[in-house]
Design a protein around this nucleic acid. Structure first.
Lengths: 120, 120
DNA sequence: TTCATATGCAACCTCTTGGCTGCATATTAG
DNA sequence: CTAATATGCAGCCAAGAGGTTGCATATGAA
């Protein structure tokens, strides 16, 4: 994903603190929204009406979910004629992934320390 | 994390479908819970009382959050005397991370297809 | 222009969340 | 045994989330 897009060397190494990532996970923490993200990710930009097809909820409900995803920076909208196309925005998802990896790394270190303490 | 623990070759390649991962993200989608996970991850097993220290909410609220994390399989509890120790459980977090990478990979493929189509 | 399509907005509803207080129970310390 | 510590359980509350319906508005098509 965007890890292959930005050759710059961490212009802002100031990654948001772990706790501040909660909203991103919260946005992903809903089955409907997760499906929307997946759909946009593989299908490219789509209109609200298109995204509503195949769902058992109303267009307005979908709109609300897209709003939540947009607030978390996971999707972006572009007006095109009378319709509004939504597209996936990989940056925040990358950051979320890095957060999980960071937690995992800390856990690995903790395990290593424990192992050393036991064996040592 | 656990990726370094299981040398087996995918005994259950049946990773839960993306949509089914929503509960895990939802569990991580709260600042308090994210901090709890981080604390358990770096600090090892801790009791409810210990986890409550440094928080501005009550012990009962912390208990509820731990319950949510446990339901998502992100933490596990062990009774020890009159206290109940909670510890981080990396498996589900690994799966969540894989899900994000999967989405990212799909996005990368979609981008590649688009690029090909545009460049001819 | 006129009709149909794609959305936007707002009000309203119900269920869930996140927190709190109070009281009961189990264990360990003296 | 008795007191202090660590939790569990239940009930109560306010705010927020997820959905719906109804009606207004902007645009493309005929």
């Amino acid at each position: 994903m965007s890890r292959s897009m930005s050759p710059r060397h961490k212009p802002a190494p100031k990654q948001r603190s772990l706790a501040q990532q909660a909203p991103i996970f919260a946005a992903l923490g809903d089955e409907v929204r997760l499906k929307l993200v997946a759909a946009l990710c593989v299908g490219g930009a789509m209109s609200i009406t298109q995204l509503t097809v195949g769902t058992d909820i109303t267009r307005q409900a979908v709109t609300k979910h897209l709003g939540v995803l947009a607030a978390a920076g996971l999707v972006r909208d572009v007006k095109l004629g009378r319709e509004r196309l939504w597209e996936f925005e990989p940056a925040q998802l990358d950051e979320a992934r890095r957060s999980l990896e960071q937690i995992g790394a800390q856990w690995d270190r903790a395990l290593a320390r424990l192992k050393l303490a036991v064996e040592g």
